[in-house]
Design a protein around this nucleic acid. Sequence first.
DNA 1: CACAATTAAATTGCGAACAATCTATTTGTA
DNA 2: TACAAATAGATTGTTCGCAATTTAATTGTG
Lengths: 122, 122
Amino acid sequence: MTKHYRPLLEELNITYPQYLVLLVLWEKDRISVKALGKRLFLDSGTLTPMLKRMEEHGLVKRERSKEDERIVEVVLTEQGKQTEKQAEQIPLKFIEQTNLDVEEAIQLKRILNKMLVQLDTE
Amino acid sequence: MTKHYRPLLEELNITYPQYLVLLVLWEKDRISVKALGKRLFLDSGTLTPMLKRMEEHGLVKRERSKEDERIVEVVLTEQGKQTEKQAEQIPLKFIEQTNLDVEEAIQLKRILNKMLVQLDTE
DNA sequence: CACAATTAAATTGCGAACAATCTATTTGTA
DNA sequence: TACAAATAGATTGTTCGCAATTTAATTGTG
């Protein structure tokens, strides 16, 4: 996915895993590292350095929660919000490139999700 | 895949990508890096260091072809061959863990392959 | 309250994927 | 034959995924 999304994401100057983080934040623009990891099946060993890189590029901010200082909340910057518009057409463009039928794409998502949830809970 | 194959491959002391290389070699126990890369959708930047690690662990040998010295052929060692028997039950064990029906597993493979070939040829 | 257990992130270290580039060999062509 | 183009791997540098461990804060229990 990373390789084949690259040309689509190149002008936004982000990678595919970073794009996944933005997808979550565009839904809810403040989320803890923990919750983000749960959504994306990633741990802090992956997310911490990745979020730091995204912060350096001005896409997100990382803020320690005042109520519970163990928690780091990831917040969209203005630039991070703006990027959503530029990324609007990416999912469609990617689906086109795969040459999958709509039913196949739906099946693929369903089966992979079933598998992933199963593997992750047992 | 790497994460969830890990417990199954732990006693063989190999990773999932290394297991994929062995699967190819168990079919044909001498193959060029180029041909191996084509089978696994990987390039020399990934394979060269990986094959060196496998060589250090005594699973394969890397031999420059006499006829064309640009080519490196990967060959199974005796230990590499032996490992096949120990790995016999792994695919079944994995499928069980996924909790997918047979039809779902077949669909998944078919769709992913269609997608991958398409993305890789265009 | 004291202090052990739990929790959230961060850190360390390794394997892997890949872009870009480099080196060495072979092939094709003027 | 000389030399450019093509080919196969190797190398360098970046990002990612994750296991294992560490650090710091919070929670639970005697």
